[in-house]
Every structure is written in C-alpha cells, then in structure tokens.
Computed example of a mutant assay.
Amino acid sequence: MATVILVRHGRTTANASGVLAGRTAGVKLDKTGREQAGRTAQRLSAVPVVAVISSPLERCRQTSRSILERQTGVAKLHVDAGITECDYGQWQGRALSDLAAEDLWSVVQTQPSAATFPGGESLAAMQARAIDSIRRRDGALEGEHGPDAVWVAVSHGDIIKSILADALGMHLDLFQRLNVDPASVSIVRYGTTRPAVLAVNTHAGDLSWLGASTGSADAQVGGGAGPEAPVSVRS
C-alpha cells in the first residue's frame, strides 16, 4: 500500500496573467510560486519520501527541486512524461478570458469526458495516461521499498484532479468539482482492494504521520483512531 503525495507546481507567470500555458516551454514559477514551493517543501520535509517524480515541464522541475533540497536520502529527480500537462493544442498560450467564449469551454466545464482540444488531446486520454503512469510507478516503488513507501509526484492541476477523481471513484464528468491549487498537497494510498484518498488540496498541516506503518488495507469501520498527535516540522 504505497502512498503518493500529489503536488501541483507553484504559481507561474502564466497563472498570474490568466494564460493557459499548457506545454509551452520556459514557463517558470514567479516569486509567489517560488515561495509556495518552498513552504510545501518545508511541509514535506517531515516525510521520508523514497522518490520525487516530476512532470518534464520546468515549473514542475523547479517545484520538485525545492522539495528535494529539504529531503535527506533522495538524491535524484526522476522525470515521467506520463504526468506532463494536458496537450491543449490550439488553446495553448491563449488567455482564459478568450477561451471562455469558445463553445468547447462549456463542454470542458460540464462534460469533460467529451472534450477534445483542437489539435491536442482529449481529457479522457489525459486521464488514462496519467492514471496508468501513477499506478505503474506506485507499484514499482512499493515493490522496491515496501508497502509503507511514500513518494511524491509533482504535476499539474487537471492531471492531479483526474487522478483524484479516479481514486474517489468519480466519473471524469465530475472532476471539475475538485479544486487543486498551486503548490497544494493531495494524498492517495493505493491498496489491494481500493485507493484511499487521505487529503485533497491542502496547504498546511503536519504530514509526519505518513512515515508510519499503514497496517491493514481494510477500511476502519467507524473511522478508526487516526494518526498520532502532530510533530514539529524541521526547518
């Protein structure tokens, strides 16, 4: 039952200006984004992660490097194209305010499973390759490090929302009900019978309990005892 911490990259220059960056090269964290990544890295420093896996795009690499700087024992950043940003095709690089006037916008909002971006990929294809990548990586890391392994995947908003929707048993058409902010932390533990969603879109709070043994894969009837009292995060 390995556990993946899903981290969205910090805020970028494109986020701040209301532009859909997509896979545009050279989009980097702005000052706020770098500060966000630093705070998330400090929060994760209490967790002994076995790997940090990043989308290939620079904003995710920057966020990942911040996380790695506060880890002990994780020496290398691994890149996985399976969790790269959605290919928004001709929408890429355009202002969100202009895209909202397109007919496809309402499809993306209300029936994302039917949305295919012109010259790009569909949201359904995006979800399928992201889930495949995350589940394969999770299985490999559990096989290498054991069932209590915790690892980090640094990716993008729609990617993480689609992974969470799958873990929650939600149809893709409902994934817009989820919110994933820049540098937020969401947590999924994959078990033998079902995934367990431990957190969604969090910005603060102790995470040291993630290093503890997970025990049984069965859900605790009545809710269980929960983790021990929070401990201070090392600076």
Rank of each mutant, 00 (worst) to 15 (best):
E102R: 11
V231A: 14
G33I: 06
G191E: 11
I131T: 13
A2Q: 01
L168T: 12
T116I: 07
G82H: 06
H78A: 15
A125H: 13
L68K: 10
R59H: 08
A125I: 01
A140G: 01
D158S: 13
R23E: 06
G226H: 06
L6F: 01
A229Y: 06
L29S: 03
Q71P: 00
G18W: 08
S66L: 03
W105M: 05
R70D: 03
P48V: 03
Q71E: 12
P182Q: 08
G222E: 03
H203P: 00
G191Q: 12
W91T: 08
R177A: 05
F175V: 08
R177W: 06
T13G: 12
C86R: 12
K161T: 02
G157D: 13
A153S: 09
R94C: 08
E142F: 02
N179E: 11
H9P: 03
F117A: 08
I67H: 06
A125K: 14
H171D: 15
L20I: 01
V74H: 07
A183W: 03
D138Q: 14
E228G: 15
Q220F: 13
G226K: 06
T63I: 04
P195T: 10
P56S: 04
A204T: 05
G89K: 09
R177C: 04
P182C: 12
E85T: 07
D218V: 10
L141I: 10
G222L: 11
L6N: 01
H9Y: 04
M126R: 11
V221P: 00
R23W: 05
R129D: 09
Q176Y: 03
G26E: 01
D132C: 03
D148I: 01
S213K: 13
R70G: 07
A229L: 14
A81Q: 10
V107N: 03
L174F: 14
H145T: 08
L164M: 11
V27I: 15
S186E: 02
L207H: 01
A165E: 11
L207M: 07
G119Y: 00
P118H: 04
A183N: 02
A130S: 12
M126W: 00
T24L: 15
A51R: 14
I53T: 11
T13R: 13
H145E: 04
V152W: 06
S208D: 05
D158R: 12
G205Y: 06
L123D: 00
